[in-house]
Write a protein that binds this DNA or RNA. Sequence first.
DNA 1: ACCGCTATTGGACATACGCGCAATAACAGT
DNA 2: ACTGTTATTGCGCGTATGTCCAATAGCGGT
Lengths: 214, 214
Amino acid sequence: MPRLSPGARRDEIIAATLRVAALKGLANTTVRDVATAMGTSSGLIHHYFASMDDVLAAAFDKAAAADLAATQAAMQSCDGAVERLSTFFASYTRLDEYSSFQMWLDAWSEARRRPALGSTSRRLNIAWQRLIATTIAGGNDVGTLRCSDPDATAWRVLSLLDGLSMQLAAHPGVIGRAVVIDWAMTALEAEVGLETGSLKRPAAMQPARSRRGA
Amino acid sequence: MPRLSPGARRDEIIAATLRVAALKGLANTTVRDVATAMGTSSGLIHHYFASMDDVLAAAFDKAAAADLAATQAAMQSCDGAVERLSTFFASYTRLDEYSSFQMWLDAWSEARRRPALGSTSRRLNIAWQRLIATTIAGGNDVGTLRCSDPDATAWRVLSLLDGLSMQLAAHPGVIGRAVVIDWAMTALEAEVGLETGSLKRPAAMQPARSRRGA
DNA sequence: ACCGCTATTGGACATACGCGCAATAACAGT
DNA sequence: ACTGTTATTGCGCGTATGTCCAATAGCGGT
C-alpha cells in the first residue's frame, strides 16, 4: 500500500517471492501468491519484472548468491586450503532448511522451461564449482594438497553432494542426513591426497553423542 | 475412438503420457495433452486413473522400470562382478535421450507435491541402488572386489552419476558428455579396490576417434 | 498550492487446469 | 435380435494462470 522507491519495492518483491517459494517451491510460486504475501496488487509485480520467469530468477539469484557469499566469506577468513575446505562443508546450508535444496531442485527441473531461471542456476552452479576449484588449486600451489585436476575434482564433489542431497530432499529417510556431508568430505580427501578424517567434520554430525549431553 | 479392453487402454494412456512427457516434461504434462496425443476425450483418462498424479506415476514407473529391467538383464548375462559393473555403465541410458533424465529430474522435483509420483521415484531409486549394491557384494564374496560397505558405495556412485547428469541436463555445455560416465566409473573403481581403467569404458566415450573411422 | 511523474490499483482477458457427470455408443452373452 | 454392461464422449464447473491496461493516488519539484 505505501508508495516505495523502485529499488525498495523490487527488493520487497524478491523477499516475498522467497517467502512463498519456501512453502510452495519455486516452480509453484505464482504472481498472485507474491502479491498476496506482499499485501499489494498483482499488477505491481509486472511493473517491475517483465515476466514471472524474471521474478523467480531474481529471487533464486538473491537466495543462492547470499548463500554463496556467506560461504565464500567464511572460507576466506580461514588460513590454509584444508581449513577452508572444512569450512566449506561446515557452512553448506542447503541441507539445513528443507526448502533450500528444494529450491535448487526446482531450479534445475525448470531450467529448460524458464530461460532466465535456467541461466541463473547455471551461473551460480558454476560459481560454486569455481569456489571449490580455486581453493584446491591454492592448496596445490603451497603444497598442502595434491590434486591433479582441481576443476574436475570440484565438479565431482559438488555433484556427489547434490546427488546425495537430492535423495535427502526427494525421498526423506532413504539415506541418513549425517552421512551426506561425511561421504562428500571423504571423497574430497581422497581426491586431494589427504588422509581420511583430515578435514574437520562439523559438530552437528555426531547428533546422538554431542546433543543430549548424557 | 475404437473401444479397447481396460488393460489395453490403460497401457495406451501410459504410452501417450510418456510420448507427451518426452516433449514437455512430466511436470507439465496435462490430462488434455494425454487425451489429445491418444486421439480420445479427456474424460477417458479419469475413467482409468483416479488422479493425474496416478497417471504420471504409472507412466514414470513404466519407463524407469523398463530401463532398470533392461540394465538388470544385460548385467546378469555377464560373468563376474567386474564385467557386470562395466555393463551397468554401458547400458546407463539416462544420458542418451535428453528427455530420459529430465523425467527423473521432474520426478524428484515433484516428489513432494505428487505423492504417487514421489513414492514411485523413491521405490525405483532404491531398486537401482540395490542392483549396484548386490553386484558389488557378489564381487566381495568371490574375492574379485574389496568393498567395505557395498550399500554406501552404491549410493555414492549413483548419486555422483545423478549429480553429474543433472548438470548435463539442466545446464548443457557446462561439463562434457563424455566425462560423466568416465568419472563415475573411476570413482567406483577406487571404492571397490580396482585399478583405474579396470572397468571397460563404453565405446561411445571416445567419440572423435572411434566414430569417423579414419 | 499547484502540477507532473510514476508507483499502485483492481480487474479484464484469454487460456489452462484437474475433475466429474449425464448421455451415448459399442461390445458380450443369451 | 435383444439386452445389460461399460468404454467413451463432450462438455461443464470451479479455479487458477501470466499478462496487460486504463484509472487512481501519492510523492517531489517549482
